[in-house]
């Protein structure tokens, strides 16, 4: 036993000498070193890799790039937090001046001020003040996680999950058969919306609904020889871009959608029917009709209901550029 103790003691001494780390009783205590950010030792001397490894992940982000002189340190966002830092005792220390977790007592405006002190001047964020999200007390940290390399809301495959935390209706709509490829991860909410504020309606990235849609659907921009008024005005008159059961993300399927605007003249007010149910040779009372039409005649119930319904014939519904002398072009037939 004694031999073992001696051996270990000798090893310790050799190690100490080799490393030059033999402690002297009166040696000055070494100041804690920064780990990630300039001046972060104030925090990381406690919140180190053992205590809170997630905190250090800030180093993986743009905020953690020390070579960029603009990047902040912990206290720039969390405040000086002197009471928190200087707390002595075994009880729980008071919270830092600014916290960003779900249960934070820091007012949202104060939380956001920490971000805006730098980001308000970003081209895509300068309209934050006055935006819907700002007015509804949405905190930047409600959507963003700054202490991770993979901020969920900045990845188009996972972004929608973050938005759906509040936008429940849209969550249900994107799973309908006609939708933009959001569930498949090929599009994200921010392709059309800028949640940080815009000049357009509904936080759309462009000044109007149509201008936003034209960034991908420029063929609809026209102008055409024959324009269709609701198309020119606002794509959302007919479409719900978040998803519908009806084809082409139409809010309501034709002919119902068309009958919401068009006079019932001629065949426009035709009651819809399907081939499986409709006997085109008789009326509801069983009276034979002299010239029964074929099923896919645009003038009868089936023709305005099945297939593309009204659009079976009025195929150029977004506008026709046909210079034809025929009035059919004006009715979006060609």
């Amino acid at each position: 036993m004694k031999k073992m103790r001696s051996l270990l003691a000798v090893l310790a001494c050799i190690g100490g000498i080799c490393s030059g780390a033999v402690f002297a009783a009166d040696a000055p205590k070494e100041a804690p070193k920064d780990i990630v950010l300039k001046g972060d030792a104030k925090c990381t001397s406690c919140h180190d890799e053992a205590d809170a490894p997630g905190v250090l992940h800030i180093g993986k982000t743009k905020h953690g790039t020390r070579a960029d002189g603009r990047t902040p340190t912990c206290t720039d966002c969390h405040g000086d937090s002197d009471k928190h830092v200087n707390h002595k005792g075994s009880d729980k220390p008071p919270k830092p001046d600014r916290t960003f977790d779900q249960k934070s007592a820091t007012p949202v405006a104060d939380r956001n001020a920490a971000c805006l002190s730098c980001h308000q001047t970003d081209p895509k964020r300068h309209l934050w003040a006055g935006s819907t999200h700002e007015r509804r007390d949405v905190a930047c940290s409600s959507c963003h996680d700054t202490h991770t390399a993979n901020d969920k809301v900045r990845d188009k495959r996972t972004q929608a999950e973050v938005c759906f935390a509040c936008h429940k209706e849209q969550r249900a709509q994107i799973n309908r058969p006609s939708h933009h490829p959001i569930p498949e991860g090929k599009m994200s909410c921010s392709d059309c919306h800028n949640p940080h504020g815009t000049t357009g309606p509904k936080l759309l990235v462009k000044d109007s609904t149509n201008a936003t849609c034209y960034t991908c659907h420029a063929e609809k921009r026209g102008p055409f020889v024959h324009n269709h008024a609701p198309v020119t005005e606002d794509c959302a008159n007919c479409h719900n871009p978040h998803g519908t059961v009806a084809d082409a993300m139409l809010k309501t399927r034709p002919p119902f959608l068309c009958q919401q605007c068009h006079d019932p003249a001629n065949h426009l007010g035709t009651i819809p029917g399907v081939a499986a149910n409709t006997d085109l040779s008789r009326n509801v009372n069983g009276t034979a009709i002299a010239s029964p039409a074929s099923q896919n005649n645009g003038l009868n119930s089936v023709g305005v209901t099945q297939g593309r319904a009204c659009l079976n014939c009025h195929t150029e519904i977004h506008g026709s550029n046909s210079p034809s002398a025929s009035s059919k072009a004006a009715r979006f037939w060609r």
Partner: peptide
């Protein structure tokens, strides 16, 4: 009635 038999039953 001008409505065809079965129309309106969707």
């Amino acid at each position: 009635s001008s409505i065809r038999q079965g129309a309106g039953i969707l």
